[in-house]
Write a protein that binds this DNA or RNA. Structure first.
Lengths: 337, 337
DNA sequence: ATAGGTTGTCGAAGCGCTTCGACGCGATTC
DNA sequence: GAATCGCGTCGAAGCGCTTCGACAACCTAT
């Protein structure tokens, strides 16, 4: 293993000079710089991460806490994680992958040990046990998701309230009057991961203004659960002509069931999905959807975290404006005639 | 930040004693140990990761290289990654998430800097550019996936050859004669990620023995691509009664298309999927499938890596035996009558 | 010519931990 | 009762880097 000292000797300068060449924290003459850089090349030198962390008390590592739950079908999580990792690298940071398993202890361990300089938390619950720790540590952090109390925190999320409202508007504009929301699995509501509730709130309040009637039903993914849920909805509100689906794994089942019952999409019923674009375009009907911008969320989280690490950057809530893309699954409500 | 020295002072012992309490590398009297442990508790001490890494030249970090491609096969990757992270923790290791973006350079950087003690590579291609580096470094590594030349490497993977064979056997036993394989997207074959080819080879050679006729067609996911592929298959081999689907995102489209054409599953045609169990059970028909054991792969990779880190543990190829679960999508071939 | 600034480089002091050899002490052995 | 051993503890060295103050050497302005 090549060390700084060896590089210094090879280049005929002192160790500190090499260090300054590497960090750029002091000016170095062009000649010396080149000599040092050549030596680094020739010897294949890589600074030792541990030594660097010890001496500078910065590890150049960002911790990313992902939810443990593999029960939910969550490509979005992976997409965010990859976006975070890729983006962090462009700022010279590596990403440490933590699962939710350790819970708040992981936060203590990571901040306490100086393993990471900062952290990003995904899948934040409304009243998350990790938040008090984050508030009292001076380690920068960014949440992806929105807890109930955001004071003293930086959060990045899709504006799910506006997303709900957008869905309501789109359906109202098309003349629908009775709409149903296929929500996430009950477990999601029980965990109080805010996004589902915020979507619903946004959708409900806009619907009230627009005169839409809304029926909300949580739904596990899969065909059986969807069949049951759909039957109940149509039983209670036979005139339902618009569906907003938040649970990704209920989308395809819903489409299949509607087809099976002879209800044409979008002629008889309209369907809006809240899902990544990829899912919307690959479904059996090209879905009108509000995209979940996974990449963007990952990118923004990193940007804000870096800003905090560099001193500027304040606590704030960053909500990404939702965008509704009209595809082939929504159309005018069938005339009552 | 509390240091070892402070703990030592608080407990009235020397720093080295505290260190030995922590590592257990020398025997410590029960009394001293308790005193030290209490001090650690009271002061809320966490060893500094950088200092530890520097002094011991071990970081207790495992690097995990995931593919950059978010285009495919994603849920499984996430599941493996989480399994790796969770499992690594039980052995006292954290996981560093690297994307494929840096390619071979990431390997150099990580091994060179001592950032990680070992690495796990996912999505290994047949002739992967990272392999030479792995072979020449003395840093332990485990691949998830199988390259062409496995000499000097430890690999963990599902036995895709046997998986293919198993599918052929199941269909043959049910009396099917003409079967079609819906493969992965062409890009997968072009990248020479071996698993798709190995599945096909296994399936083909067993089919030959059993007298099955096999038609293989790569297929992008989604409805349009699947519709095209299915039409071509039925055009070329109208008598096809068995399908083996390797591309997860082609499963549901296939089922929908068959339904639409009035071909009943499993009365008229049988379908086997190679996919995680969750997908198989949530599909519109409960699918007979060979599971992709993501958790198991992650777990095994970590176990073998730890073994190598601890000195025992040899280079070997670990193939997980496939298991076919019969569900509701396969049945006897329709009689020619 | 002289005081005052720059600029580029060096030496040394740590950062917080692990680990090696040394040592004191009570328990064994003949 | 002396020689031997193991156990539990300590002190010190050093892991490879960053960073601070010091200091030549040069350049400017008076």
């Amino acid at each position: 293993m090549v060390t700084l000292a060896e590089v210094a000797q090879h280049a005929g300068v002192s160790a500190s000079t090499v260090s300054y060449v590497l960090s750029g924290k002091r000016s170095i003459s062009a000649g010396t710089r080149q000599r040092v850089e050549r030596s680094i090349q020739e010897l294949g030198y890589h600074p030792n991460a541990g030594a660097r962390a010890l001496a500078s008390s910065r590890s150049n590592i960002i911790a990313l806490m992902v939810p443990l739950r593999t029960d939910m079908y969550v490509p979005v999580m992976m997409e965010i994680a990859i976006a975070v990792a890729t983006h962090a690298r462009t700022h010279g940071y590596d990403v440490l992958l933590l699962t939710g398993e350790e819970g708040p202890d992981a936060v203590r361990r990571v901040t306490g040990s100086g393993l990471a300089d900062a952290m990003i938390l995904m899948d934040v619950e409304l009243d998350d046990g990790r938040l008090p720790l984050l508030r009292q540590t001076d380690q920068p952090s960014v949440l992806i998701g929105l807890p109930a109390d955001t004071s003293g925190l930086t959060c990045v999320d899709l504006d799910f309230g506006a997303t709900g409202a957008l869905c309501a508007e789109h359906l109202a504009l098309l003349g629908h009057r009775d709409i149903a929301v296929i929500g996430e699995a009950p477990a999601v509501y029980e965990r109080h991961t805010g996004f589902a509730e915020r979507t619903l709130d946004g959708l409900r309040s806009r619907s009230r203004e627009l005169g839409l009637r809304v029926l909300h039903r949580p739904c596990e993914g899969g065909y059986d659960a969807m069949a049951l849920t759909l039957a109940r909805i149509l039983d209670e509100r036979p005139g339902t002509t618009g569906f907003v689906v938040q649970n990704e794994s209920a989308v395809e089942p819903l489409l299949a069931l509607l087809r099976q019952q002879g209800r044409a999409v979008p002629e008889d019923v309209s369907v809006i999905a809240i899902c990544p674009d990829q899912v919307a375009t690959q479904a059996s009907v090209r879905l009108t959807s509000v995209a979940i911008p996974a990449q963007e969320m990952g990118r923004l989280a990193v940007e804000h975290l870096i800003a905090k690490l560099e001193g500027h950057g304040k606590d704030e809530v960053v909500l990404i404006a939702p965008e509704l893309t009209v595809r082939a699954s929504t159309g005018p409500a069938p005339t009552a005639a």
